[in-house]
Design a protein around this nucleic acid. Sequence first.
DNA 1: TGTACATCAGTGAACGCGCGTTCACTGATGTAC
DNA 2: TGTACATCAGTGAACGCGCGTTCACTGATGTAC
Lengths: 215, 215
Amino acid sequence: MGWSGQGSDGGRGYHHGNLREALIRAALHLIAEKGPAGFTFADAARWAGVSSAAPYRHFRDRDALMADVARRGFEQFEAALEKSWNNGRPDPFSAFENVGRAYLAFARGEPAYYSAMFEAGVPMEADPGLRQAADAAFGVLRKASESLTAQLPRESRPPALMMSLHVWAMAHGIASLFARADAGRRKLPMSAEELLEAGLLIYLRGLGLDPAGPR
Amino acid sequence: MGWSGQGSDGGRGYHHGNLREALIRAALHLIAEKGPAGFTFADAARWAGVSSAAPYRHFRDRDALMADVARRGFEQFEAALEKSWNNGRPDPFSAFENVGRAYLAFARGEPAYYSAMFEAGVPMEADPGLRQAADAAFGVLRKASESLTAQLPRESRPPALMMSLHVWAMAHGIASLFARADAGRRKLPMSAEELLEAGLLIYLRGLGLDPAGPR
DNA sequence: TGTACATCAGTGAACGCGCGTTCACTGATGTAC
DNA sequence: TGTACATCAGTGAACGCGCGTTCACTGATGTAC
């Protein structure tokens, strides 16, 4: 049978079985549909097919639910970035481009998670483990940056932290300006992926890095 | 006397005098305080010191008010960028850095406008003139980019449109991740301004541009 | 300069609605013996 | 294997609240003559 998370599935007993998960799926669905501010606690309950009092057994309030969604989002984001980085294989440059593509793929493919993580204004203190999950996701960018700067001679090596912040900013900027739902706002001469890839290449060249190899 | 826009100023007649402007100021105040989703039409009326029915004389609904705020935001944004560009003086590189600083200064100094422009999800069709205002603001970045790419030999000259999209993305990424209200989310080893300046320099170097002069 | 009148920009009361939240409750599940 | 009981995870009714919106109204302003 499998819980779809959707209500009115008829054959449910008095107990839901996994309401906590169903509420999170409901939140994701509703955020994707109406934006991070566009859903209510009552909405989530309705969508999960339970009474409006039921969610209180699992979350203190709407904000707690949002914070949980954000934390899970960062966890999945980290996994996706880590996978695409693939330990720097086949080579750091290609792997770096792959991370960029994975970044945009996540923003596009999981708009609800992305919103909860970056746009909903969830404070880092809202959930134990939220900051840690966010740091871990950023850690992948940082690790990848270190791997690239390590190819430069020591005296012209930029701080990897700074580099990862630049990369993050450009990826986030492209994702939120050009790759998301309200992307109809502006037409581009190229895809967001191509734009990011070109931007990263230019930036890396500016650091003295060249795909052809060190120096 | 001067309308502060604040209510309960006692000496107001039956007519407000300039309710439309007061509502916009109210919106800016409330957005800055509670975020773009955190204010209501009734809130704005209350803050302007009028009954909750009064705003309907000036705006069809809350969305129309938001759209007007966004349009004004883009107009002011354009003016600020244009001023800082200062026709490429004293030289295109310095002027370009100035535009970057002005970008962040606007995002920081006018968080309510910035939110309405980029985060509130206002559709471009919501207001006649909104798209035009947004395009005009972006036009400054584009013009500045053209001015810089023009210094490169024709055969290695990147498309100025692409360059301006990269710059916009990086500036927006830094503004929204590191320079705004919820910036307490992450500590930086340097200011957002320094981060952007460094990022732009690296990027420009990657294009083959050097502050020392052409080539 | 004064008066009549049209128009404009507010008022305030009213309404229906959905949300958040609490509460006593009840059906289902797990466990001690 | 059966029974009593504690605990858990839901129900559904109720409440107060603020929002959006409409409506007939009224005070102020502008203008024709």
